[in-house]
Design a protein around this nucleic acid. Structure first.
Length: 378
RNA sequence: GCGCAGGUGGCAGAGCGGUCAAAUGCAUCAGACUGUAAAUCUGACGCCCUUGUGGCUACGGGGGUUCGAAUCCCUCCCUGCGCA
């Protein structure tokens, strides 16, 4: 079980300062959760992740079900022991894979639409490789074509075996191309699944219900009201976030107003550097995103100036640390020219150094924000 | 000196008479990435412009055969290997 305590509410925004207590430790919120899909933050050991001041991780039900299978994790004593991460853990339900391996893959789109397209996903339409039904989703593993069925009961059962502190309801993350009717229909299904998840859970893990509804205000509000009315331990806000960033904050706003105040809210899959302040001000307590880790592997350092592509030649003679104000071991000990060299030389150390820095930098930025909230300045 | 094999875009390396401004890989440059199929993906990559079934210059140098040559012939230069 978890306990959520709100220490302070901002008077100038919806931001709040809180403590999320779990059996494996306390999370100071607002807080970022790095993504450890396959029970690992890519390039880092769990010990290294701890050194980035990370408080909580999120792993993935779908991927761990495929490999190595929840039985193996369970027999290892659960995810915490399996990956030697003694701190709080979340598992995503597999609902994101309904999108990422479905329409996301078919249309080559992410959760936020970049370019306007005429193609819309209409009610009744199915992705090429997966089949979404009322009872759950038939996946085709992209790895080997294996067929996997995941519904609310299956997802909860797997998540119980994995043993994270916080688990999520099985939902359908809808695509930004989904039209109103598709989204409405999908939402009804996601709501039904949420109730089933709630009923089928036997463990003492905290269960977060996920709000969907796409870009449609009435659906978002309807979803927040419905999910918010159920006895979840907290709430996830998922799905697409519109055609541009301006809409995103507004969409969070629609939802947050409808959710019970005393419970934690997790924003699923959002967290580029530029988003942090906005989403915390919108009232988000925790959020996860692959950006700091994946971008690191693609050469991007998150620093005070913004996102720097450390693989560019312009850094080949730059003797500065990644960020002058950052106190992580990478910034204390290494210079940009070295990291640039590592990238150009294809050395995997480059990926590790940037991953470490990005996480540390993210966590520091958010720690600063917590301080500001405490002082009433955020 | 003789014999053999070669000289192709930044590099490696295909092509061996037209569909070749020239495969592919690497390198380079630019862009993307938001609950991770991602140490990934996309695009550009001879020069010029009015950006096009456009123009120009190109496959070691020079000459030739041919309607047409990176591709065939002659010659020169260079490289590698072998033999003196």
């Amino acid at each position: 079980m978890i306990e959520f305590k709100i220490l302070k509410k901002s008077k100038i925004s919806r931001a709040r300062l809180g403590l999320l207590k779990t059996e494996n430790g306390v999370v100071e919120t607002p807080c970022f959760a790095p993504v450890a899909t396959q029970a690992a933050v890519k390039t880092l050991t769990s010990e290294e992740v701890e050194q980035t001041k990370t408080q909580i991780l999120i792993a993935n039900t779908f991927h761990l079900h495929l490999k190595p299978g929840e039985k193996i994790v369970e027999s290892a004593g659960g995810l915490h022991k399996f990956m030697n991460w003694p701190k709080p853990l979340m598992t995503d339900s597999g609902g994101f894979q309904v999108f990422s391996l479905g329409f996301g893959r078919d249309f080559g789109t992410g959760k936020i639409l970049k370019t306007k397209t005429d193609s819309l996903i209409r009610k009744g339409q199915q992705p090429k490789l997966i089949k979404i039904t009322g009872g759950g989703v038939f996946f085709t593993s992209p790895l080997n074509g294996q067929k996997i069925f995941l519904g609310p009961r299956e997802s909860i059962k797997i998540q119980e075996s994995l043993g994270a502190d916080i688990i999520f309801t099985f939902d359908e993350c809808t695509a930004p191309l989904a039209d109103y009717e598709y989204t409405k229909n999908s939402l009804a299904r996601t709501h039904r699944w949420a109730e089933i998840c709630l009923k089928s859970k036997k463990s003492g893990q905290a269960l977060f219900g996920i709000v969907q509804g796409g870009k449609f205000k009435d659906l978002r509000i309807e979803s927040a009201k419905f999910i918010g009315s159920l006895p979840f331990d907290g709430f996830g806000i998922g799905g697409e976030f519109g055609d541009n960033k301006k809409i995103m904050a507004q969409m969070i706003d629609w939802v947050i107003k409808e959710l019970p105040e005393e419970k934690p809210r997790h924003l699923l899959g959002i967290g580029r550097l530029e988003d942090i302040a906005k989403i915390i001000k919108a009232g988000i307590d925790t959020f996860d995103c692959i950006a700091p880790t994946r971008f690191a592997r693609h050469g991007i350092a998150f620093v005070s100036e913004g996102e720097l592509d450390m693989s560019k030649t312009k850094f080949s003679e730059d003797k500065n640390p990644l960020d002058k104000k950052c106190s992580c071991f990478v910034c204390r000990n290494y210079r940009r020219n070295y990291i640039n060299h590592l990238f150009r030389a294809g050395e995997i150390t480059a990926l590790k150094l940037l991953t470490f820095h990005n996480l540390y930098f993210f966590n520091s930025e958010i720690a600063n924000i917590r301080e500001k909230i405490k002082k009433g300045k955020f």
